[in-house]
Amino acid sequence: MTNPTLTRSPSTWHNGLDRVTHVSWPWRITWAYLIVMLFLPTAAMILKASTLAPADIWRIATDPVALSTYNVTFVTALIASGINGVAGLVVAWVLVRYTFPFKRIIDAAVDLPFALPTAVAGLTIASVYSSNGWIGSLLAPLGITVSFSRLGVGVAMIFISLPFVVRTVQPVLQDLEPELEEAAWCLGASRWQTFWRVVLPPLLPAVLTGIALGFARAVGEYGSVVIVASNIPFKDLIAPVLVFQRLEQYDYAGATVIGTVLLVASLVVLLIINILQAWGRRYDV
């Protein structure tokens, strides 16, 4: 009796060799491009950070100015993406369930923050919300200053992260049959019960994914915030602007450490997004 693994092993070995020597061109281009464009730069930064002594890394990363920028960046981004979590759900609901004039234009315009260069967004938000701008002049008598303050950072982040929740929720909402809600109604559920128990659960993974995507984008945002904010430490300086300032002062160690903090944060958010999407797929069955 021959051992099946023994007879099979030469061919598997051959297949393996085959795979190494006859890698198709798309594979080679994909990996070569990824190595040059993505892996080398990432490795350069991580290795640069690892050449610093751990004590130095800790000192730079927890410097009071750095800590204040984390506060402004992460807390403001969380609030902005949270606001868009609620607003995006309502926008998606209105766009999917209702018909009204100019709906198509409004639907298309939701993607504007993806298409509009961030420098333009910053420029126009700064002037619209400044004390003599269209909206800012209405808020000024109430003692609210938006441009050149943390509130302005928040508005820019809201602008940047607006489309994410709308675009993740819309397809799920489209697949959600209104019959389900009607059934809940017929069974005597109130409007709130229908919303909380029937509508929201299948939408929740999409909403949270959208919030996480918007958060990741808002945390990394530079162009619009640098123009809207006054970029003063402890007031409205965000971490990406701090990285930029450190580089301008040729402080490569400082820039690298804070850049690495931002990179790790975005990797964590990416992981959370993947988990959320896997969670969302359980409704696909």
Partner: peptide, 20 residues
């Protein structure tokens, strides 16, 4: 990995290229 540039701050992307 291919999605990574979407979640990395553009400033960090620029920094990586400067460091390289």
């Amino acid at each position: 990995i291919i999605d990574l540039p979407f979640s990395v701050s553009p400033v960090v992307a620029g920094l990586m290229i400067v460091l390289l």
